[in-house]
Design a protein around this nucleic acid. Sequence first.
DNA 1: TGTTAGCACTCAAAATTAAAGAGTGCTAAC
DNA 2: GTTAGCACTCTTTAATTTTGAGTGCTAACA
Lengths: 347, 347
Amino acid sequence: MVSEHELNERKLTILHAIIKTYLETGEPVGSRTISKYTDLNLSSATIRNEMSDLEELGYIVQPHTSAGRIPSDKGYRLYVDMLMEEKEQELNEREDQMLEKADKMEKLLKQAARVLATNTNYATMVSTPVNSANKLKFIQLSMVDEEQIIAVIVLGGNVIKNRIINVEEPLSNENLLKLNMLLNTTLNGMSIEEINLGLIARLKEQAGIHSEVIGNVLDAVADVIQLDEDMQIYTSGTTNIFKYPELSDKQSAQEIISAFEEKQQLTELVAQTLSKEENTGIQVYIGDETPVQNMKDCSVVTATYELGDGMKGTIGIIGPKRMDYEHVLKSMKRLQSELDQMFHKKE
Amino acid sequence: MVSEHELNERKLTILHAIIKTYLETGEPVGSRTISKYTDLNLSSATIRNEMSDLEELGYIVQPHTSAGRIPSDKGYRLYVDMLMEEKEQELNEREDQMLEKADKMEKLLKQAARVLATNTNYATMVSTPVNSANKLKFIQLSMVDEEQIIAVIVLGGNVIKNRIINVEEPLSNENLLKLNMLLNTTLNGMSIEEINLGLIARLKEQAGIHSEVIGNVLDAVADVIQLDEDMQIYTSGTTNIFKYPELSDKQSAQEIISAFEEKQQLTELVAQTLSKEENTGIQVYIGDETPVQNMKDCSVVTATYELGDGMKGTIGIIGPKRMDYEHVLKSMKRLQSELDQMFHKKE
DNA sequence: TGTTAGCACTCAAAATTAAAGAGTGCTAAC
DNA sequence: GTTAGCACTCTTTAATTTTGAGTGCTAACA
């Protein structure tokens, strides 16, 4: 049986040493290694006793008798929550790549994913920002040809969408102007919830014979707000998983790679991430904790970035459970702030 | 030494049998197998002699002494060009999935990739259509707020793009209207090549104090035309490659998968495909013939589909060299016609 | 009571060896 | 020109052995 307080100072030190060593080597670590590695000046035999206790407590496990120990999910969790020192050290030292300016946000985000993958050697994903609680900023209808109107819809954060609307007969320029006036004076600055049935009825009434067009436009607006509708997810460095034998067997590799290709599951991850409101904005999922079933043998670190106007996006790093959490968290924070800077410099 | 005409009837039959058997089994095929498989009624010894000739001619190779033979790239090429019977048989028999209608082209194409991957068990890609030789159809400038104009640019085929343009001071509605008039009367129906420096100078002159805006707009137009600019490539079934041992080793898998993730290389493939004008529209690249270096151990089959207005897209199937060419070509043709139908029903 | 040396034991991984089998090339006979 | 027969090659698979890291336990020690 093990003492009341579960973990005394010494056990913590040993656990810490085990995990750190394992993170570095990826090999089960044995008592002798720890005996030398720490400055506790204990013999391997003593360490063995402590390790036996730690195993009983569920922090480490043995892949098989006569192998060293590796951290369990519970062990990793403790490490991430308590043991790990977050090095706030100079970032400049490492020769990590930096984000470069890019004209289009799309390009910038793709680049962000790539840079992050290069710097960490894990697989990464970046979602385009998504308009949670968005407002309508501006609508413009224009005749493209005899039978088609294009509706340009600008949302808060200057997100621009467009839809083609078919009409039976051409509208006169004058009428088009009126409709534009009507739509903009009524709807500008409104959030989706505010555009209710009563308002719609009133609008249609005022539009007279063109009420059908208004209907179509409002449909388009509703359509455009749908979150997922056009959220894009960029991935990079998927093949980094082959650097980690524990994820390289066909089974695992296949699962992870499909999750990355069929973005469906990543969407789920983004939704989860955005819904949780942590103060730091960074979350760590270890093993089974992950919202993405296909990644149950991985650790997943996510963060959100903001654009203002309620626009939020997600960054994710996916790697083996024995990922270098310190480095990953550091890179994550850094990218977060770089993105912030980019987006706020821009406006 | 081998006879003048390289391949007589019997050699062709044997080669055909070898390749067909290899496509099915994936194992090197030996003389005895062929002796039984064909109705030539020849002993294995005779077959061996013929095989020896075929090897000397470069159509088959031996992985090592005392193994059967497998087709060389040259062998595959002959097979695809001459030996293969294209079964024009009923398509309905197979329980292949069909394409379902989808509201957005984007969704349709994603689905197309997925269906194709499911039906063939290979990796697939589908590019969004790209405007080769495109014409400007319509431009609309609108003030979004005090300092920003949005330029909506409609191209032939109703491809809609937009760009935000910053201005120092707001334009009056009247001026905006004038600019719109000016742009549309001058530019509508023009292809990119027609918008030359002289024209630009003339435009700017007419725009007077707002010539700067015109400049920005034209930049935007030029930008928008850039082919690659926003061509999307959807992939599916990447992990199918794990079904084929010859592509499953880390090295190969990694190469293929990165090519699929970093779409850059696929873009190259699309460009190649679109540039070649085959009558059938279907191309087969075997091994080294492929434009994508990372796929040199694969066979790549590509096809184009059309939307009219010069919009063309590409479909691709990537698999092992010993892919089931008959089935692949059949599926390809079918998808091609399904897409055609979809797009023409739509209009 | 906590620590340690010592030793028998376990087990995975690597290396070695052996056996099986598929297939060829060549020769000689039909 | 075709074929039976046989020696030879080389991969694949399985079986066996060796090695070495690491453990758990016991007994002695401070």
